[in-house]
């Protein structure tokens, strides 16, 4: 293993507990399931499993008292800096990915997993150039969750959108649905990974706002920490539901926007200065 891992609760290394998933979405899904009476026979086993899981208090229920999000100030994001990208790769073991022997560099670049990337864009009229990090926008109404046939893509009550690696069948429909190209499919056998971020060939994954930190009550993400450590302070992490949080205050004072606001997804990641 290449770098140090934070000490962990053993339960956090395993894929998300189904109880974490018991948000309003889940109950609506259950209702629709019952409504589709004709299908009950096939569906019943899933509900039994779910009921059992709910009875097992392995982790504290994720509460909808929070909604985690990020605010990116593009004016502060530095051209050529990739501290957040490197930090994300290390936090999630993405730096352990290896190109396959017969794979060309060009293929590898399009097939390896990328959770966080830098994008540089230019305004067509004014010529103004901005830099920004792009990742899963943690939509309140996530298209990826809507389309996922097995429910492996899910939104936690605290707004974090992630993939349950036990139920993802690798159909990649969520990747078709995401407007931000935020998701990656694991195209090769995973040889090396971190316990806190289980990965596996044939599943889809994306930024989960450093979910294992959330479950330990830590108050930041790897990307925000790395950016702050360099003094750029372009990424602010926090609770969008807490009016006193730094992110809520910044959002109140600073003009910001969602990318593709026309889709009405109410993203948890907001951008200022672009």
């Amino acid at each position: 293993m290449k770098h140090q891992e934070a000490p962990l609760d053993p339960s956090l290394g395993s894929p998300p507990d189904p109880t974490l998933n018991a948000g309003p979405d889940q109950s609506r899904r259950a209702f629709l399931g019952i409504a589709a009476g004709a299908t009950a026979a096939v569906v019943a086993p899933a509900f039994v499993l779910q009921a059992q899981a709910v009875g097992n208090p392995r982790a504290e229920r994720v509460s909808d008292a929070h909604r985690w999000g990020l605010l990116v100030d593009t004016n502060r994001c530095v051209d050529g800096c990739r501290a957040c990208v490197d930090a994300c790769d290390q936090e999630n073991g993405l730096d352990l990915q290896r190109k396959q022997p017969d794979q060309s560099e060009a293929e590898w670049d399009t097939q390896k997993a990328v959770w966080l990337r830098k994008v540089k864009l230019q305004d067509n009229l004014t010529g103004r150039v901005s830099n920004l990090p792009m990742m899963c926008q943690h939509c309140e109404h996530p298209p990826c969750v809507d389309v996922c046939p097995t429910g492996a893509s899910f939104k936690r009550a605290d707004g974090i959108v992630m993939v349950d690696r036990h139920t993802c069948i690798g159909c990649r429909y969520c990747m078709m649905a995401c407007p931000y190209k935020a998701r990656s499919f694991i195209h090769e056998v995973v040889e090396d990974q971190l316990t806190r971020v289980p990965r596996g060939k044939g599943c889809v994954e994306s930024c989960n706002l450093c979910v294992s930190r959330r479950d330990q009550g830590l108050d930041s993400t790897a990307c925000a920490d790395a950016c702050t450590a360099l003094g750029h302070r372009a990424i602010l992490f926090g609770d969008l539901k807490d009016p006193a949080s730094a992110i809520s205050q910044a959002l109140r004072t600073m003009p910001s926007r969602q990318i593709r606001e026309d889709l009405d997804l109410n993203t948890g990641v907001r951008y200022a200065g672009v």
Binding site: R29, G33, C148, P149, A152, G170
Partner: peptide, 25 residues
């Protein structure tokens, strides 16, 4: 599929908002 071995998962876990899942029916 990335995980064809999980066909059983696809059969036992349904997301009824997914048009993909409806298509299975």
């Amino acid at each position: 599929l990335g995980r064809p071995d999980r066909l059983l998962v696809a059969i036992t876990h349904y997301n009824f908002r997914s048009i993909f899942a409806w298509n299975i029916y």
